[in-house]
Amino acid sequence: MRSTLQYEADFWIMSVTAVITQGVGIVFLWAIFRSIPRINGWDFWEIVLVYSLVVLAEGVSQLFAQGVWNLARVVNTGELDPYLIRPYSPVLQVLGSEVGMNGLGNVGLGIALLVGAVIHVQVAWSPARLALLAILVVSGGLVKIGLNLLANSSAFWLKTTWAMVPFSLHTFGELTRFPLTIYSTAIRLVLAVVLPYAFMSFFPATAVLGRGAPQWVGLLTPLAAGYCLLLATWVFRRGLVRYESAGH
């Protein structure tokens, strides 16, 4: 953290960039909703809720687990070696090897959007429902971290110099910024089951709003988070067995 803060100008550039990039997406939604009241039955603030959960999950994963995006490089160059010597979990070391400062911008914007959505959607907010939302937000972040680790663990098999496969999966996951119902069955199936990115935004939102999908699916989010993290750690360990450093 301190090493990143040293470059103060860079920190501000990255934070502002994160806000601009995601903010443009919100302006886009606003521009559409100027002429259309609903998309597949979802109004503006309901979609903002879904969108804010993706921004938050992205921000959380950047702040706590940005290092996973270096995995392809360190596997390719053999820089992974020092992690394996230290008496500490290699998975956690890889995840924590970098703090993505643009995560702060995303978390800030995500919270702002979430608060806006919570105020405007037609839901009777009780303390229990707000607590549920908080649990689902945290679980959504963990889903994202788990899926990032899973995707990046492909580095042990692919051995490419940069994380091109995980990055395209990440952009695929961004499809969940919009309600899942707009997509074709095949895409829905992949986002809900195969690579359950929908659990970081759409399903939690349906659980809170009580519509769009059966509520119990959204309540499974913490389980989905646990499943993603366990699966990812298992795949990472399997990959580690194949790791043969550089040279030799």
């Binding site: 998309i39 091109m164 496969v165 952009t171 961004e174 499809l175 707009i182 997509y183 895409i187």
Partner: peptide
């Protein structure tokens, strides 16, 4: 191809979104 896939996915989201609209 993979770097292009990123923009292709966001275009895909746009197409589905507008089709719904």
């Amino acid at each position: 191809a993979f770097s292009m896939l990123a923009s292709a996915f966001s275009a895909l989201a746009m197409l589905y979104l507008w089709r719904a609209v």
